[in-house]
Design a protein around this nucleic acid. Structure first.
Lengths: 250, 250
DNA sequence: CAGTGGTCTAGACCACCAC
DNA sequence: TGGTGGTCTAGACCACTGA
């Protein structure tokens, strides 16, 4: 390599990352293929260890590659689940458009664990939405094929659900929505607020997220037909595992 | 510091990052505050430069902090714009629930630049959705308060829009949707597919994204009332600038 | 111009994984 | 057991920022 530092070009690590990225995006390197490792990059480009690591870190932070300890760095897979928002207006009713993203729609079941049910004092934002200072909280984790894909936390106004099965781990047939119906509190309207951000350490651990994986945060509020808020559900999704779909009319 | 390496604890850089993170989340360090810099961390913890950088990199990659060259590392702001999906069922019609996320709803105008209009051969996925191998493409960038927040690319089946103002940079009053209406192709149904991922270099540059900022990708397809796809719009949003809202009935 | 973050080198020891 | 990535040190030069 040139011993004289190049004046104003992009840094070495970035140019190396650019090269690897285009090999991935062009399809030369495919899902699961092994990238050149730190030692290979050091030899190929005559650079130090830290610089090679820096180049690979770029791709890892972009979510294009995943490091495997003691093994190598590999091109990442993207096999999302399709999550439907409003089904009622789904495209099957009025057209046969093709979805643009492939998604694993085969009906593999969710498994649930890390369940936790508790009565708590509501955080300020939660209290504001539910109009209630005391809430019942239901936390759980969903997995597909033993892979954790979603964390969910539901809040219910304590005074409305006190004594119902919603306050116990097993909610019985039909789940919490059936119990809300039993209480005369059937959800009729939903609003979902969707954001994306990088995960914190807890989320990284529980969802087993590799570097460079954002989470999608869906905050859904359920209202009865008379406008009473009955549930606030915050879902944290592995963004590499999901495509959200919403259908609606003009 | 202990000269003997601690056996199985988390690494130093991670513990330092944990400490800073809790100071941010607890509110001790607030929006825009300066974090201890590399030199301060080296002195405080008796560590090397690279280790201090690694600790700060954790927070930067989580999107909690933003580095300013020659100045310092600062706690990041989050002031989103609220983007409504289906307005027709918006909560104002049936209830007065509070949104959980604060959002800048004041009507600051978008500005548009980086406009590009071209006729192109459609990529495979685009052709599949629009049923058309040739498309007119409209690219542009939206900014709010001089801050770029969204890149958008719209595709139109060439045979349907040929000769209309959709093929010229200035589409006239009402924009492309008015022109589609003129052609008897009013959009009546929409489907949106929402994903999140880390940005590539082009997106990082055009949106001026700091590290640790995912993008939200919305792929919206517009159909006429008879189910003919007339537009495919791919929007790439700065996730730190947006909250998406969708309202629908049970 | 002093301090900051950005890049880079040349070493070291470790845990983990596959062969 | 050899190669991989994970962590860490101790230096260096640079470009940029702000007082």
């Amino acid at each position: 390599m040139s011993e004289v530092p190049v004046p104003h070009d992009s840094p070495i690590y970035r140019r190396i990352a650019d090269g690897l990225r285009s090999r991935i995006l062009s399809g030369e390197l495919r899902d699961g293929d092994r990238l050149p490792g730190e030692n290979a990059l050091m030899a190929d480009y005559g650079i130090a260890r830290a610089t090679a690591r820096q180049a690979l870190a770029v791709l890892i932070n972009e979510g294009l590659a995943v490091p495997k300890r003691g093994s190598g760095v590999y091109v990442r897979l993207f096999k999302p689940i399709r999550r439907h928002g409003s089904r009622r207006l789904s495209r099957e009713q009025w057209g046969q458009g093709h979805p643009i993203w492939d998604a694993d729609t085969r009906g593999r079941p969710f498994t649930v664990d890390e369940v936790e049910v508790a009565r708590e004092r509501a955080a300020e934002e939660v209290a504001g939405v539910l109009d209630s200072g005391e809430v019942w909280v239901r936390r759980r984790r969903y997995s597909v094929d033993a892979r954790p894909v979603q964390l969910a936390t539901s809040y219910f106004p304590a005074r409305l659900v006190e004594g119902s099965a919603i306050t116990s781990p097993d909610t019985g047939p039909g789940g919490v929505y059936a119990r809300l119906r039993d209480l005369g509190l059937s959800p009729a309207h939903f609003t979902e607020e969707v954001r994306a951000r990088m995960p914190g350490p807890r989320e990284t651990g529980l969802l087993d997220l590799p570097g460079g994986t954002p989470v999608i945060v869906i905050t859904r509020t359920a209202y009865t037909s008379t406008g009473v808020p009955v549930e606030l559900n915050e879902m944290v999704l592995d963004s590499a595992a999901y495509v959200l779909q919403y259908d609606f009319d003009a």
